[in-house]
């Protein structure tokens, strides 16, 4: 089986992109959330939080094959 990254989008990001979940091939050269975000062509990363395997991380944290990567628009709960 091919090694992939699972990418999740939420709320306004999901609507902007038109998809909620996508499996991307894991490319050794594309190894951080910032680089994956740039591939998705969804605008600036500013204000977007990032979770890898359900932990909030910085945009430059290295990714591993099989990771679940989520891009989260600004939080508005409470």
């Amino acid at each position: 089986m091919d090694v992939v990254l699972k990418v999740l989008l939420f709320a306004s990001l999901r609507e902007r992109a038109g998809w909620a979940e996508r499996s991307l091939p894991f490319t050794p050269g594309v190894s951080t959330a910032r680089e994956v975000w740039n591939q998705l062509d969804l605008g600036p990363l500013e204000g977007i939080s990032i979770a890898v395997n359900q932990e909030l991380v910085g945009a430059d944290q290295p990714l591993q094959a099989g990771d679940e990567l989520a891009f989260l628009p600004p939080f508005t709960g409470g």
Binding site: F10, S12, A51, L72, F75, G77, G78
Partner: peptide, 8 residues
Amino acid sequence: LKHQAPFW
């Protein structure tokens, strides 16, 4: 809760 929990 308002600023650091992933709700939208």
